[in-house]
Design a protein around this nucleic acid. Structure first.
Length: 639
RNA sequence: GCCGAAGUAGCUCAGCUGGUCAGAGCACCUGUCUUGUAAACAGGGGGUCAGGGGUUCGAAUCCCCUCUUCGGCUCCA
């Protein structure tokens, strides 16, 4: 038989030859470096037989697949070590994931694992790695596998096999053994545990079996593995750096906001944070006006009747803050749409008026479960850059397209590159298929028109309509939804919204729900991490630090600051009697983009000595010229 | 909400197995210095050790409850 090498040449082999033999036939160095092979693009074990005529490749430490492979190996090694140290532990699943791997265990009654136990587990893993246990695959009939895992009391594996039988009609399953430990596993694996060159266990967490909160909570151990200690160290260092840009840490350091036990999940915005917040609200207004948005203001508190109409009373009450007044049950709004729908419905509309675009920086309260709160990224009180567009079905596509244009124009200002997701009709939904067809294709066409790549989440849409979400990752790579554009056929129905058409008949408008930044809180949290606290000039809460050389220069410093303020620039004077070096250092730490040192020379010549955070000492500049230059810089948000 | 961990001065943290354990650095205040591109020097004030209960001769330290936070899971209409 023969296989086709990546360079197109053929390699002749004995019938039934394995990947390992093929690699050896190419060269001893390659045979040694080989971790697995690819056959027609599919990765498989070195020990597995090859197929005649297939495209063949060798996976080595340099291949993209290598980390995935050894991390999956490492998950098995973790399970081996855990079973050694905690006999009676049941295993479930342990995949490789982005940046590492995990394994979910059900520890015996009375045993709890904490991060203090990880070093001992790691040590044990290293013994398994050092022992260079080979991964041996065996394919056995499902009946035999079931019997085997039942005998071992491995209930989770039994359930997995049963599901494989039901869902995929499998007749055999594959097992992998390393040392004493045998796991149900699809593979592939490297030849032996010593291919893992560096490991680190990172954290312990709870995770529901099969991600189902009604089922048992297992103990998940997270770790990572690399092909060299050096790469592992570099990765861990990167994580450390990422933690330094955590918005919660920077928010405190830069005096942007605080959190307090007196109002969990709600930020207390300090003046500098409020400045950021207001800048964004202003940005939304400035960009919204020419795009036809009209700002409205709606109440915080509504009679339960409104929530019954909107459907929130039935579906969302658990997450609402409720109260009552004179025996009327009331609820704080968790979203703006019912208010906007009500406002639309309180007026008379002609088709000539549509689309109507109501925007509102709406304050919302959602009683999120305590365990889900996360700095500014998941809060109980927040403000959305919200808007609702009431339009005809014909207008959907162009409205959605302009929402996307608006979103990308906004994101571009900050250098953010969101990933887009289109979520389509769920099983539980309202409306007929023809309507969903039109709605989904309107969204698709809008996406295509803007030319952005997107992924499709089949069945992940809201029950009332499909949606487009914009996601951004935080400093640690966790994905957060910022913007959303949702089509809503339900709310207009529930609120009995209408407009009069050209045919003089009543028609139902479609509602587009859109928030582009998502919430100002979350957006600021992401921006802090994106910039590591070093905001662009136009956005920085304090744009200019004025640093008088000595006390006698205070008057001139104030004059300078007044000139800047008059042009709408945000300057702060360091009035302390400290050395210039000290004032510069503190201004650097506060991340002020521009520093102006003023002393005798400057006061004399009505100039300033300019130092920019990014570029250092730039020398002398006349005050008038500086004000003009910086005003232009602030006005130009792209800079 | 669930699993695990943590909560000590404004911030970052040290206080191991209960007995000068209420500490350090930064910040703050006062004084001296009047400073020229990343930290002047000296002194000082500040904590019901998250809150509540318990064990003990004695608790920041051990136990229980509550709250909050952190890492995940579920959830995010």
């Amino acid at each position: 038989m023969k296989v086709i090498l990546p360079d197109g040449n053929e390699l002749a082999l004995a019938d039934g030859a394995t990947g390992a033999e093929a690699a050896a036939a190419i060269g001893p160095g390659l045979a040694k470096a080989a971790l697995a092979v690819t056959l027609d693009g599919q990765i498989q074990d070195l020990a597995a037989p090859l197929r005649d005529g297939a495209a063949f490749g060798v996976v080595t430490g340099k291949s993209d697949e290598a980390l995935d492979l050894i991390r999956h190996d490492a998950a098995h090694v973790l399970a081996s070590a855990v079973i050694d140290l905690y006999p009676g532990t049941k295993v479930s699943i342990g995949p490789s994931i982005e940046n590492g791997f995990y394994y979910d265990f059900d520890f015996p009654e009375g045993i709890t694992i904490s991060e203090d136990d990880l070093p001992a587990i790691e040590d044990r893993m290293r013994e398994h790695i050092k022992a260079a246990e080979s991964f041996e695959r065996s394919d056995i009939p499902v009946a035999e596998a079931l019997e085997r895992f039942k005998a071992l009391g491995e209930d989770y594996k039994v359930e997995l096999i049963e599901d494989l039988i039901i869902n995929e009609s499998v007749e055999t399953v594959s097992l992998y053994r390393n040392g004493e430990f045998t796991d149900l596993c699809r593979g592939p694996h490297t030849p032996a545990t010593d291919r893992i060159k560096a490991i680190a266990l990172q954290s312990v967490a709870g995770a529901y079996w099969r991600g189902d909160s009604t089922r048992k909570m297992l103990t998940r151990i997270y770790g990572t593995a690399f092909l060299s200690q050096k790469e592992l160290d570099a990765h861990l260092e990167l994580l450390e750096e990422a933690r330094a840009r955590d918005h919660r840490r920077l928010g405190t350091q830069l005096n942007l906001f605080r959190f307090s036990e007196v109002s969990p999940g709600s930020a207390f915005w300090l003046p500098r944070g409020t400045q950021l917040f207001n800048s964004l609200v202003e940005l939304s207004r400035e960009m919204g006006a020419p795009r036809g948005y009209q700002e409205v203001k709606t109440p915080q508190l509504y009679d339960a009747e409104l929530w019954r109409t909107s459907g929130h009373w039935d579906k969302y009450r658990e997450n609402m803050f409720l109260t009552e007044s004179e025996d009327r049950p009331m609820g704080l709004k968790p979203m703006n749409c019912p208010g906007h729908a009500h406002l639309y419905g309180s007026q008379q509309w002609s088709y000539r008026d549509l689309p109507v675009r109501y925007s509102e920086p709406g304050l919302l309260h959602r009683n999120e479960p305590s365990g889900t709160l996360h700095g500014l990224l998941r809060v109980r009180h927040f403000c959305q850059d919200d808007a609702h567009i009431f339009c005809t079905e014909d207008q959907i596509q162009s409205e959605v397209a302009s929402c996307l244009e608006f979103a990308f124009a906004t994101y571009r200002l900050f250098g953010l590159e969101p990933s887009l997701e289109l979520s389509t009709r769920p099983d539980q939904r309202i409306g007929d298929d023809a309507t969903w067809d039109r709605a989904e294709s309107a969204l698709r066409e809008a996406l295509d028109q803007e030319g952005h790549p997107y992924t499709v989440n089949e069945g992940d849409g809201a029950f009332y309509g499909p949606k487009i979400d914009l996601h951004i990752t935080d400093s640690l790579g966790r994905s957060w939804q910022l913007g959303t554009v949702q089509l809503d056929y339900s709310m207009p129905e529930r609120f009995d919204l209408a407009y009069t058409g050209a045919d003089n008949a009543e028609h139902r408008p479609v509602m587009i729900h859109r928030a582009l930044m998502g919430s100002y809180e979350r957006f600021i949290g992401i921006l802090i991490e994106h910039y590591a606290g070093v905001f662009p000039f136009w956005f920085a809460p304090i744009q200019i630090a004025v640093l008088p050389v000595a006390d006698r220069h205070l008057d001139y410093a104030k004059e300078v600051a007044a000139c800047l303020a008059e042009s709408g620039l945000r300057a702060d004077i360091d009035e302390r009697t400290e050395s210039v070096g000290r004032k510069i250092r503190d201004a650097e730490i506060s991340k002020a983009p521009v520093m102006l040192i003023v002393g005798d020379r400057e006061a004399e010549g009505r100039s300033v000595s300019v130092r920019e955070r990014a570029d250092g000492d730039l020398g002398d500049e006349k005050l008038d010229a500086l004000v003009a230059r910086l005003s232009a810089k602030a006005a130009n948000r792209d800079a």
